[in-house]
Structure formats: C-alpha cells, structure tokens
C-alpha cells in the first residue's frame, strides 16, 4: 500500500502536542534557577562587607539601653547586633568600651560574629581590623585574608570615657572649715542628669553614665589628710538617688559593674573596703550597674566616699559636680582610627 507521508496533523494530536510544549517550556524556564544558584555566592562579598562596615561604624547595636556591651556571659544570647557607634545620631564615632567588648574573643566565638555582625545565610569567613592612627588601638579578629575578598574601609574617631580627676588643686575647695566639729567625713561626687543629659551637646562629646563608664579619681590624697595622719580609712562607697540610697550588692569580683582601686594597689576592693588611703582612690562605675539604678533625665546620682576615723584623719568634704566644666571633668580627645572589614 502506498504510504502517504504528508505532514498533516490531526486535531487531537495538536492538543496533545500543545500540552506537551507548555509543560516543556515550564520545565525549561526553571532550569536557569538551578544554574544561577550555584554561582551567586561569590558575587556579594563586597556588599556583605559594606553592610558589616555600616553596622560596626554607624549603628550603636541592639539592645541600646542597657547597652549590649554591659551584658555578661549568661545573657550574651540577648545581644542582637554588635554595633560600635556611640549613638545613631553620631555615625562614625565609636565608643571604646564597645570596641574592647567586640574584639574580646573570649566572649564572642566565630559563630557569634557571624550572627551578630555579619549576618547572611552562607557561612562567610571574615577578618575585621581596627587601628587608631596613633597606634593605641590595634585589634583584629578573624582569619588571614586570601587572594580575593570583599572589602570596605571606614575612617572613624574613637570616643573614650570621661574622667573626673580631683587632685591637690581642689584642696581649698574640698577641705572642711576649721570650726566644724563633726566627726564623719563624706565626699560626694554628684551626677546631675539635668546638666549631663543636655541634648544640645553632640553625642560624640556628651557624658551619659547610663551608656558609658565614668571614672572618679582622687589623687594627691595626702593633701587632704589631717595633721599628722598618714592615711585615712575609707569606710565605704555608697550611692544615692536623690534622697534615697541605692543598694549596691556587688563585690570586688564583679568587674563588669565597677572597679575600685586604692593607692596603686593591683588588687580590687569591695564597696566597703575599710582600708587606709594614703595617696589615691580610683572608682570606675560601669553602665551595667548604672543602668540598674533607674535613673532618668532628671535624676541626681550621688557617689559618696565615707571616711570614718575617730578622730578624723582627713579633712575632705564637699560636693564635686561631674559635669561639662573642663576643670571638673576631663573629656579625652577623639582619636582617629581606621576600620577594615574583609569577607570571603
């Protein structure tokens, strides 16, 4: 029989063929998705490095109040972002306590850096370095950089906490008057938050004890001693908010909350040291403790140094205001620094 090989289609063949073609096109259009996924991990290293640079240089981190660097090992899971900036209104100004905490590899492990600073689904390798131009800060974390990597460099300035130095030049102001017969000697350093939390001062220069440590250093103590006494006994350091006293249940091991040093001794003292002071006292009060004092923008925090000797061995008295007066408080200059982030 003569086969007729004309290429004519029948209708039901067309229908079947159409369904087949539609299915084939749908499958073919999914193929690029398979191939694109394999090649995208190398493209966004620079973008991830840029994002990490922004988080470190322009973001104060989260939580902000109390600040994340005040959290101890038990609560490190609550830290969501480790930003180094002083506040979100002062980009590129970093706080030195945040820097010290961020580069503390005994507190953060590589998984923490990935989840709190770098983010992303892929396990990136990283190298984050910070160096101040005068060399005082020189920190690095992460592995050695390979040949090709994503990179960003930021120029920043580092803010260090303020210090109130009460030295011999204050002798006349803080000495008890000769006709005063009282036997207790109390020296108060007053934090008046009405003066301190002044929003017209840029956050790069502002003193906020709730977010950064404050340092009270009394030197030349021999000038404040009474007559022939060689030392005066520091009975206790107490804290008051307005008229009510604040409980301070920490001891010398709680270095995250405060440190108290007396007379250049390397040991740390509890808040009730009961030891003699002959040359200097240095108290650093950290935000981990201050944030628990429930202080607001109108509070007044008094730090009292109570000396008790019978008869009194020191003549120190008075109230020293921790404010923006440069003779009362020294605010260190901002230090320029370079921050580099490498991601691969």
């Amino acid at each position: 029989m003569l086969r007729n090989d004309e290429g004519l289609f029948s209708i039901d063949f067309l229908v079947g063929f159409t369904i087949f073609m539609v299915a084939l096109i749908a499958v073919a259009s999914m193929v690029p998705g398979l191939l694109a996924g394999l090649q995208s991990s190398g493209i966004d290293y620079d973008a991830v490095a840029y994002r990490t640079g922004v988080i470190l240089a322009e973001d104060p981190g989260w939580p902000v109040d109390p600040p994340w660097e005040a959290y101890d090992v038990n609560h490190s899971g609550e830290i969501e972002r480790t930003g180094l900036a002083v506040s979100k209104d002062a980009p590129n100004i970093l706080l030195s306590t945040k820097i010290e905490k961020f580069f503390d590899t005994s507190f953060f492990d590589p998984e923490d850096y990935r989840s709190k600073a770098i983010f992303g689904d892929i396990t990136y390798s990283y190298n984050i370095t910070l160096r101040s131009l005068d060399g005082r800060y020189n920190h690095a974390v992460g592995q050695e950089t390979p040949e090709g990597y994503g990179y960003i460099r930021r120029v920043v300035k580092i803010k260090e906490p303020s210090v109130a130095v009460i030295n011999g030049s204050f002798k006349d102001r803080y000495t008890i008057s000769p006709d005063d017969n009282s036997t207790t000697r109390t020296f108060i350093v007053r934090f008046d938050f009405n003066r301190l939390i002044n929003l017209s001062i840029d956050p790069a220069y502002r003193i906020d004890p709730r977010t950064e440590p404050v340092n009270i250093t009394i030197t030349d103590f021999e000038k404040f001693l009474n007559g022939t006494a060689s030392e005066a006994t520091l009975k206790s350091v107490t804290f008051r908010r307005g008229s009510s006293s604040i409980p301070f249940p920490y001891d010398e091991d709680d270095t995250d909350y405060y440190t108290l040093r007396i007379d250049n001794n390397p040991v740390l003292y509890p808040p009730e040291p009961g030891v003699g002071v002959s040359s200097n006292i240095s108290l650093v009060l950290k935000p981990a403790a201050t944030s628990l004092f429930e202080l607001g923008p109108t509070s007044i925090l008094d730090v009292e140094f109570n000396f008790e000797d019978k008869p009194p061995d020191t003549n120190i008295t008075g109230i020293h205001y921790y404010d923006y007066n440069p003779t009362n408080v020294t605010r260190p200059d901002l230090k320029p620094a370079v921050l580099e982030v490498a991601i691969w």
Binding site: I93, V155, Y205, D333, L334
Partner: peptide, 15 residues
Amino acid sequence: LGSDVLAMMDTPDSD
C-alpha cells in the same frame, strides 16, 4: 571612604 574622611575632618576632636 571619601565621605567618611570629609566627615571626620569636619568633626572637632573635643567639644
């Protein structure tokens, strides 16, 4: 980088 450098030059080191 350039914006950072200009911003830091514009920031005094002390209040």
